[in-house]
Nucleic acid binder design. Structure first.
Length: 462
RNA sequence: GGCCCCGUCGUCUAGCGGCCUAGGACGGAGCCCUCUCACGGCUCAAACCCGGGUUCGAAUCCCGGCGGGGUCACCA
């Protein structure tokens, strides 16, 4: 049977890093095994779901390159892919379960429940079953609860990453599966859709292992075979708690995009949080698709490590085609220019993000340069200016303005005067860039162009 | 607190009974390269949570303790 997996986010905010990795793992599994990757919107929380969030999630996945085979915008045979458009299906099965005595209407209000919960003084309070045997609960205004078997049986499943997990019925309760208005809760919607959409494997974060049990109970009540499950380790914030939107700004996928992180790097970073392939660190998407396997997914939660993300980002800055990087920096510059490629080559080992890269490019497109006072004081002393003047004369005599001849001329000059190259290069660097640091002096001057470079030198000489 | 899961350098991890005086990567320290800054190369510091078993032999298997996380909603 063809593997069918899904990513089923709740559109209540931007795409979360944890969600992105869940999507990635499922996507990789589908791609690796010739399966289908389904995107389903679990928008049953009317309070919090918004169209903006749907768009944000779609945009995030697209930016990462995680394309779905069925879902919003790709209506397949199991459409629709928004749960709020599937209400009739949920009603059908809910009615069936009620008729069979496997579910019942409950008229307890939220307030009554809260009161009883508070009175019990039990942090793990479970629904007391008050409405379970009542026959007089009106159909309107009542929620539907699942009637958990009261025997001493148990539910268990073999998780693809965690192994066998078991829970007894007595640890479960009569959870609410449908609201009074006919909108299902998570467990119900999830089970019915996964079955209806013929999902063969459910891959999600470990925060869902406990909810797997009520879902298993539902599968059994409905007489359905449950899919396979794989629960991925959590991604933790610096405080060692589950990465959450509230507490951890880095949970936002798009924040990283805005910070100049490449999707390749983010995917690489996130795939290594919980999954490994021997000692490999820099892993392309193509390699992930070839290697990904639930057997190599670890059980332990991983802590978000910004330094490693940054390092990975630079690895991609250094190895992706310069033309490609240039294309991605262009929007940050607000314009395109053929010199971007040379600038990429000059700066890719010196910056960590595309944002830093754009900032580094900027001075090369301005007339003149503001000198860093400290650098000027160091390199543009009277003595420095004297050597700069000599250097300038040599440069002006150059027939071709390019890195190689410039470097060569400087070397020759240094040899003839017995000076170290640095003595010549630093005043020149400060004059040309205003700073004590820059790419190689030849490259720097070439990219600047003869006219601008000489103009800056003359300005520094004054 | 109940239940569930987990426990190798600061962090991500390799390891799946002998190959481990525990390997790699990020980060840190140092050296080299060098026109500056980077990049790169080399070196160093740094871990098997604790205690019992099982075994000729345990980071690897079992039990207990401790520690961490998750979950207990008409959120997902």
């Amino acid at each position: 049977m063809k593997p069918r997996v899904r990513f089923a986010p709740s559109p209540t905010g931007y795409l979360h890093i944890g969600g992105a990795r869940t999507a990635l793992f499922n996507w990789l599994y589908a791609r690796r095994n010739g399966g289908v990757f389904v995107l389903r919107m679990e928008d049953t929380d009317q309070e919090r779901s918004t169209p903006e969030s749907v768009k944000a999630i779609l945009d995030g996945l697209q930016w990462l390159g995680l394309d779905w085979d069925e879902g919003p915008g790709k209506e397949g045979p199991y459409a629709p892919y928004f749960q709020t458009q599937r209400l009739a299906t949920y009603k059908k099965y809910t009615d069936q379960l009620i008729a069979e005595g496997k579910a019942y209407r409950c008229g307890c209000t939220k307030e009554e429940l809260d009161a009883r919960r508070a009175a019990s003084n039990d942090p793990g309070w479970k629904y007391d079953g008050k409405c379970r045997e009542r026959k007089d609960v009106p159909a309107t205004g009542a929620v539907v609860r699942f009637a958990m078997p009261k025997d001493d049986g148990a539910l268990s499943f073999t998780d693809l990453v965690l192994g066998k997990i078991t829970k007894t019925h007595s640890d479960l309760d009569d959870f609410v599966m449908m609201r009074a208005d006919g909108i299902p809760l998570y467990n119900l919607g999830c089970v019915i859709d996964d079955h209806e959409m013929e999902i063969t494997l459910v891959g999600r974060g470990q925060e869902h292992v406990n909810s797997t049990f009520p879902q298993l109970a539902l599968y059994r009540a409905l007489g359905w075979e449950a899919p396979q499950f794989a629960h991925f380790p959590l991604i933790l914030g610096p405080d060692r708690e589950k990465l959450s939107k509230r507490k951890h700004p880095e949970a936002d996928v798009m924040l990283h995009k805005n910070n100049g992180v490449l999707p390749e790097a983010l995917l690489n970073f996130v795939v290594r949080l919980g999954w490994s392939h021997g000692n490999d660190e820099v892993i392309s998407v193509a390699q992930m698709k070839e290697w990904f396997d639930f057997k190599s997914v670890g059980k332990t939660s991983g802590v978000w490590n910004p330094e490693k993300l940054t390092w990975l980002n630079q690895q991609y800055l250094k190895t992706l085609a310069p033309e490609e990087i240039a294309k991605r920096v262009a929007p940050l510059m607000g314009f395109d220019d053929p010199r971007f490629v040379k600038l990429v080559l000059a700066f890719r080992t010196r910056v960590k993000t595309t944002v830093e890269m754009a900032a580094a490019f900027r001075p090369y497109f301005e007339k003149g340069v503001k000198l860093d006072p400290e650098a000027a004081a160091k390199a543009l002393t009277a003595e420095g200016k004297a050597t700069l003047a000599t250097v300038a004369d040599a440069l002006k005599a150059l027939p071709t303005w390019a890195a190689a001849p410039i470097d060569e001329a400087l070397k020759k000059l240094a040899e003839s005067t017995g000076q170290k190259l640095g003595v010549l290069a630093q005043p020149l660097r400060v004059a040309a860039t205003g700073s004590m640091t820059s790419p190689g002096i030849g490259d720097t001057l070439e990219i600047l162009g003869r006219d601008e470079a000489l103009a800056r030198i003359d300005a520094a000489l004054k």
